[in-house]
Simulated assay, not measured.
Amino acid sequence: MRQKWLLPFERELQYSGPEWLLRVIDGAEMESAASLLLILWHAWFARNELTHSNRELSIACSISFLENYWDALCGVRQ
């Protein structure tokens, strides 16, 4: 997703204490923080699909979903 979206640098995403994610989001631009949260939300969804339904989501499927969902969210804002 980094090829398509502006995301925080890898070094900023390393665990640095109990509130590391809040610090990353607070220090990022609004669009970058929103993109990161969307990726984390979808990663949790993919984890639940694998854990509870034994259904593995492909990376291509996840990329397509995230791009389409982002476009829909941006369309609602306008």
Rank of each mutant, 00 (worst) to 15 (best):
S53F: 06
Q3P: 06
S58E: 02
K4W: 07
L37I: 04
A46W: 00
C61K: 10
S58L: 03
F45C: 07
F9P: 14
T51F: 07
H52I: 10
G27I: 07
S35R: 13
V76R: 10
G75H: 01
E67K: 09
L38V: 10
Q78S: 09
E29Q: 12
R77L: 10
S62N: 03
Y69S: 09
S53L: 13
I63E: 09
E49H: 04
N54L: 10
S35K: 05
L36R: 09
Y69C: 12
E29I: 08
F45Y: 11
D71Q: 12
W70E: 06
W41D: 14
R11S: 14
E56S: 11
R55T: 14
A28G: 01
W70T: 15
P8I: 06
L57F: 03
E56N: 08
R11I: 11
W70L: 03
W20V: 00
A46M: 13
A43S: 11
V76D: 09
I25W: 04
E67T: 05
G27T: 14
L66P: 01
R2A: 07
F65V: 14
L6P: 04
L57P: 08
S16R: 15
V76H: 12
R11Y: 10
L21Y: 10
L66Y: 01
C61W: 07
L73G: 04
E29K: 11
W5Q: 05
F45E: 08
E12D: 15
P8A: 04
S53Y: 08
Q78C: 08
R55P: 00
H42D: 05
N54E: 10
W44Q: 13
I63H: 06
L73H: 01
L36A: 09
A72E: 08
L57G: 01
E29R: 12
R77V: 05
N54K: 08
L38W: 02
H42E: 11
N48A: 06
D26R: 15
A46Y: 00
V76L: 13
S32H: 02
W5G: 00
S53A: 09
G17D: 08
L7R: 03
Y15K: 06
L22F: 10
L13Q: 03
W44P: 03
L13K: 02
S62K: 02
L21K: 06
N48H: 07
W44L: 11
R55D: 04
L22Y: 06
F9R: 15
E31P: 05
